[in-house]
């Protein structure tokens, strides 16, 4: 038995060692906001935060994550209150089909954990490992700019 801490909640799960974190999140824990697309670390849709760092959950074994903090898209908003990144994605229409969106958002959240005053370029760099096939990139860059404006404004 393994205990995964996801979005602050401990989840005991019984999984064999070969089970991938992404699959355990989606199937065993029902957290389907994290998307499965390529299974090979080639797209970024499965990005989650592992101890505040963005990683591809398709290239992580669930057993590796014992004692680590896992955060998924479901854990970001507080009730109806979106994070600055989520709010910016809505405001800038930085999504179309929405399938890459959770991964894009967590990549930016990860960059903000590293550097709360990350600028537009740093937040854009943070999503270089997230493909968007609908081609919403320019609006994603706009969202990065909006977040940067807010966060540096907040930092004074």
């Amino acid at each position: 038995m393994l205990t995964l801490t996801v979005n602050g909640q401990p989840h005991p799960v019984a999984v064999e060692p070969r089970r991938i974190l992404l699959d355990v999140l989606r199937r065993d824990l029902g957290l389907t906001g994290t998307k499965e697309v390529c299974e090979m670390g080639n797209c970024g849709a499965c990005t989650v935060l592992l101890d505040d760092e963005a990683v591809y959950s398709c290239l992580v074994l669930a057993v590796e994550c014992e004692a680590q903090e896992i955060e998924t898209v479901e854990g970001l908003a507080r009730g109806q209150e979106l994070t600055a990144v989520q709010e910016a994605f809505v405001a800038c229409d930085a999504l179309q089909c929405g399938f890459c969106t959770p991964g894009q958002i967590l990549s930016m959240e990860g960059a903000l954990r590293r550097r709360p005053d990350a600028d537009e370029a740093a937040l854009t760099e943070a999503v270089t490992g997230n493909l968007c096939r609908c081609g919403a990139y320019r609006n994603i860059v706009a969202a990065a700019g909006r977040v940067a404006a807010t966060s540096s404004g907040g930092a004074g």
Partner: peptide, 9 residues
């Protein structure tokens, strides 16, 4: 090399 997520790992 690779991407931020891969470099984190």
């Amino acid at each position: 090399a690779a991407t931020p997520q891969l470099r984190n790992r």
